[in-house]
Structures are given as structure tokens and as C-alpha cells.
Simulated scan of single mutants.
Amino acid sequence: MGTLKYRLRAKVEIENVAEDFSCWQRYGGNLSEKSSAVEEPETASVGWGAGVDHSGESTSHGGMLGWHWHKDPRLDCLGFRGIFPSGTTPPLVEADKETDVENYLLWRGEKGVAEGSIEIPKGEAIPLECNLVGLNAISFDKGCYVGQELIACTHHRVVIRKRLLPLKFLNNNGKEVEEKVAPGSEMIDTVSGKKVGTVTMALGCRGMDVLRLDEAFKVGSLIIQGREDVKVDTIRPELWPSDWYQDHQQHSAVA
């Protein structure tokens, strides 16, 4: 989560409550495909049955601070997220289903969903190249915001030639390799010998980077600089609308 830095034209006191509260994410499977509503119907209950547990309903909606689960607005498969008091287990979290945060980060990376200033470099990243249109993060109907005109013109008039893509790291036999690539590693196209990108996120055998589409899908030609034994395979994210891929194919054909 970001840090609030400024107080503008308001007499407010900012208190750091990071130790008092924790962020949770419920994700996986078809968890959030049941409903397109803002909040999953069953978040009102602490169980998975059809009935409503009113005690659970009170707990899941919180008390004075109003904590409860919200549907992740980016992708259905990312499930639900919420902020809850530290040291407690939120409603609907089963003990045998709780997992390490790295598993969620890997899940998010496999879906091609970047977040934070490391994966989306501040002052460098272009929102359209980071697929934010497909993540419900950009509005073309409301204004005004900084960069609105440039983003709108690019969206409607320009073919996006670079996009954020999930990566898979492999050895020479095509097997996935873990912990062989670090964020900041450079990728090289062995055919042209040129640098094609810098890995912005790497975890286990997966990663993410913004790549030119006419280079990204060259099977078997991408490697990690300095680690010629590690090949890079790109994955087309499920979040991509079909026209993104069609635009790329048409542009490649014309080129």
C-alpha cells in the first residue's frame, strides 16, 4: 500500500496504524466468479453455507472502523481484499487455506498484474503499456487528471507496441528454473543481440516485464544477460481483450 505524504488545505492529523492493521487477500479458483456485485454475497457470513450468520455478518462488516471484504476491482480471479485488525483472522479465512504472501504474489505475477513503484516504475512507466486499461484502472469518461489528454489520444489513435507480459524462466531443456533471475536482470534477443527489456518482477520461476510485442513472442530467442543457461518464455495474459492481440498481429503483418 502507498504512504500518504501530504496534507492539503485541511487540518488533519495523520497517524501510522501499520502495526494495528493488516492487509488480506482471498483469491484463487472461481472464488469471485459467483457474482459481479461489489461485495460477494457470502462475505456476510463466516461460513460457506446458504444461511446467513448474523454474528458473522456483524464481524465481517466490522465495527467503528468499518472493515470488511471488498471485491478486487482489477480482475475477478484476484478475489477479495480487506484491511483487518492485526493478530486476528478475518471472517471466511479457513485455517487450512491460509498461505504465504509469496504464493499470492506469484499468482498475481502469472496473471500479468503489476503493482507498486518497483513493478510500475514511477516517472517511467506508461499506463497503457502496463495494461491498466484492462485492469479497470483508467477512465476515459471523467476528468480532469494529469496526463489525461495524452493517455486518451494514445488509447484511441495509436497502436500500443509494448505491453507488460508475464515471463517464465526455463533451462535449456525447457524445464522451469527457480531463483535464477533477480529483478533488474536484462533480457537479450539472441537473434538480434539487442537488449529487449529489464525484468521488473521476479519470483521463483516467474516474472514480469514490458516488452515490444514484435519481439516478445519470438519463441526460444530470449535469454537473461549473463545467464545464458536461462531462457525466457512470454505468456499472453488472460486479462488481454482479444483486440489487443489482433492489433499486434495486424501491426506485425503491416510492418
Rank of each mutant, 00 (worst) to 15 (best):
V52F: 03
H68N: 10
I83P: 02
D72V: 07
L105M: 15
F84L: 08
G87S: 11
D53H: 02
P73D: 11
K97I: 12
H70V: 04
I83K: 01
L106T: 07
F80Q: 08
E57W: 13
W69E: 02
L92Q: 06
D76Y: 07
E110P: 05
R74P: 05
E98I: 15
G49T: 07
S58L: 11
H70P: 01
A50H: 14
F80K: 04
D72A: 10
G79T: 05
D72T: 01
D100F: 10
K97F: 07
D100K: 11
P90R: 06
L106N: 05
A95G: 09
L105N: 08
V93P: 03
G56N: 03
L65R: 14
G66I: 01
G82K: 03
S58V: 10
P90I: 02
S58C: 11
H61S: 11
L92W: 00
T59I: 12
T89Y: 05
S86G: 00
D72Y: 08
E110C: 15
G66T: 06
S60C: 09
G109L: 05
D76A: 10
D53F: 05
D53S: 11
G56W: 04
G87P: 08
V101R: 13
S55C: 14
L78C: 04
D96K: 06
A50D: 15
P85M: 01
S86W: 08
D96H: 12
E94R: 13
F84V: 03
